[in-house]
């Protein structure tokens, strides 16, 4: 086969493989599995506290209230989320105030609600506050309540921040109502949630990983990146030698 013919054949094969991979990825089962990977939520177990992570005021407080009313936990932890606007411009209450109000309206006693103070800008910040709280309560266990597809990143953060104490936390999924997780790709919120969770997970692995993991990961990445480069250099050298032999002959 001529060089041009071989190239056409190779490009054709690559295109076919790409179409095949896209077809496999686009199958509903595959798309569902992509979302399910993010959900590491478990059925509730008896714990001392339920912690509501910020960002889901329409569903998460309801799940936490359900846990308390059904006897799974004694108290509910909420993290302070400062107002984004100035006090004069704000027309809505801060999210933790709203969450507290919702819990009270759902019949949760005032004394069962505990505020974790701090400037929590991300999930990671909230888990750091949880670690501080658990240090002060060495025998306490906690159910972390968040959206199902947010549980993997949360679990990663908990393992990273709490270390051996991570086994004191379990993850309970609240029902999400902005999209159907079985058909997430059809909904703008679902598409955004799944894709951005993967991106955030990758970001967390780089930004918040411990130094050893980061160095090992960086080394592995460098090796993986260097392999094709080494292959190209070796092939180029071989080709050069072959040309030289041909000319020599």
């Amino acid at each position: 086969m001529s060089t041009v013919g071989r190239k056409i054949w190779l490009y054709g094969l690559a295109a076919l493989l790409t179409v095949l991979v896209l077809f496999i990825l686009a199958r509903p089962q595959t798309l569902r599995a992509i979302a399910q990977f993010l959900d590491v939520g478990e059925p509730p177990r008896r714990a001392d506290y339920a912690m509501i992570l910020g960002g889901g005021v329409e569903t998460r407080p309801f799940a936490a209230a359900s846990l308390l009313h059904h006897g799974w936990v004694n108290h509910i932890l909420i993290s302070e989320l400062p107002l984004l606007e100035g006090p004069n411009e704000a027309i809505l209450p801060a999210e933790h105030d709203l969450t507290r109000k919702i819990l009270l309206m759902l019949g949760v006693p005032e004394e069962s609600i505990i505020l974790l103070p701090g400037n929590h800008a991300s999930t990671f910040d909230e888990i750091v506050s949880l670690r501080d709280f658990l240090r002060d309560h060495p025998r306490a266990t906690v159910l972390v309540v968040t959206d199902a597809l947010h549980t993997r990143r949360t679990a990663w953060s908990v393992r990273r921040v709490l270390g051996p104490d991570a086994k004191r936390a379990r993850f309970v999924s609240a029902v999400g109502d902005s999209f159907d997780p079985q058909r997430w790709w059809l909904y703008p919120d679902g598409f955004f949630f799944v894709i951005s969770e993967y991106l955030k997970l990758a970001f967390y692995c780089v930004r918040y990983a411990d130094r050893t993991t980061l160095v090992a990961g960086g080394f592995l990445l460098a090796v993986v990146a260097a392999l094709p480069l080494a292959f190209v250099i070796a092939r180029s050298r071989r080709r050069g030698m072959a040309e030289g032999t041909a000319r020599h002959a």
Binding site: A65, W72, V175, D177, F179
Partner: peptide
């Protein structure tokens, strides 16, 4: 896109079953 699912407050509050053995 299609409309997202809708849940009532009651459905969300019944999300988890009562703990066997009663309140802690």
């Amino acid at each position: 896109p299609p409309d997202p699912p809708e849940f009532t407050v009651r459905e969300l509050l019944d999300r988890f079953p009562p703990r066997v053995g009663g309140a802690p």
